[in-house]
Design a protein around this nucleic acid. Structure first.
Lengths: 226, 226
DNA sequence: ATTTTAGATTAAGAAATTGTTAAATCACCA
DNA sequence: TGGTGATTTAACAATTTCTTAATCTAAAAT
């Protein structure tokens, strides 16, 4: 798996643990950042916008829960996953942690294997959408990085506009995009083009990927069905 | 928090646990439904369209995983969160439940406080985005984003005006909407159309969703009964 | 019981929206 | 600069949705 595109931030005041966990996770290919107290954790989080934060509950100065509360107040860290490290069997901190906005907890002492599979599971569940590749149905794959579309594993070339349009629809399958929305997101706010332009592009895409995937919702717009 | 707007379904074969969990969650204000086996769980899920289902993995007759697989096949339950209850110490990355479409697991024995905070965490995280769904009764779901209506989990296509009209009624079930109100909200303040136009639209909707849901209130208007 | 009124039903044509095609324009690159 | 493919326009066809009008039905009022 391409773990290298995930940023993890570990916040713990014990150097040993920090190093130990950092080492384990780096070996799996993750980009690892560390901080040894709550304040530093917050500032690193704001700077790096990690995908997942592993945070010790008990720390001197600022405890993990307060730190998480502050992190959750930051809009750009809205989607960031947070995992608490707690001493075994402390129910109390688990609860407070969830209230503060944590997504999971792991009890100490930590076994690296457990940590890793847990981290992977969380990432898989929550971030599966924006992984560059969008899979719409088994036979349609859109690779945003490579700028290509695969239909039944066969590469299909789409010109820029068609690609953008298809990508937009595919990013939220089944969602109906109004013509307005499509204009704004594909053509841009300022560009003014005729009414039939979208239709023509849709038609061209349909010619290439078949007529079944893009559905017309008359009076509203288009959607990519899944 | 307004926990009362969330429906939870607990499925477990042990009466004790069912009661115990149900009690704890009700105390928090959630609407709680229970089922003591997989089959019953599925039918209750289809009827109530809960926001979250707590399901024991090990049950006689139909195990939790099979039940979840079936639940995931129902379109109206697409967004429902599913939490598994598992025996202690099974490393959760190994559990087939995730494959089946579960969103989390909780190990037995269950501490109510942990359960509650976990449930809250899941609801908080997952349901803040897709507030576009209106559920009227178990068998009628209106999805504004997808512009589709599900009747018993089966998709129904409505043209724009019909959709708007049904959505309006569904947004406040049991409220009677006057013709005036309907004209203003569906057709707009300026458009002038004949008196029978609404009737015809109502008729078309009834053709598609059945005659029972939309009631005529003679002399006043229409309402969607629940 | 009869009349009155509001709503139900139906089908037809009007209106709105999208599909299709070909040709014109644009943008980029050898 | 000419050529190539991408993009847009324009005209018309096809389709779907909306509205109307005429007739029918059922409930309320007299």
């Amino acid at each position: 798996m391409d773990n290298d595109k995930y940023k993890l931030l570990i916040v713990d005041d014990e150097e040993d643990i920090l190093e130990f966990l950092g080492y384990s996770l780096k070996r799996e290919g993750f980009q690892v950042f560390t901080a040894s107290n709550g304040k530093d954790g917050i500032s690193k989080a704001k700077k790096e916008i990690p995908h997942l934060i592993i945070m010790d509950v008990m720390m001197p100065e600022m405890d993990g829960i307060s730190a998480v509360e502050e992190i959750r107040n930051n809009k750009s860290l809205d989607e960031t996953l947070i995992v608490f490290l707690t001493a075994r069997s402390e129910d109390y901190s688990q609860i407070a942690g969830f209230e503060a906005g944590a997504d999971d907890y792991i009890a100490k002492p930590i076994k690296p294997k457990v940590l890793i599979s847990r981290v992977k599971a969380l990432l898989r569940r929550s971030l599966k959408k924006d992984s560059g590749k969008i899979v719409v149905v088994g036979n349609l794959v859109i690779d945003q990085e490579k700028f290509e579309v695969l239909l039944d594993g066969k590469k299909i070339i789409l010109p820029k506009k068609e690609f953008k349009l298809l990508k937009l629809l595919a990013a939220s399958p089944n969602k109906v995009f109004t013509r307005e929305e499509i204009f704004v997101k594909v053509w841009g706010d300022d560009v003014i083009v005729g009414d039939r332009t979208i239709d023509v592009h849709v038609r061209k895409i349909r010619e290439k990927i078949g007529d079944n995937l893009i559905k017309t919702v008359k009076g509203i717009g288009y959607k990519l069905e899944n």
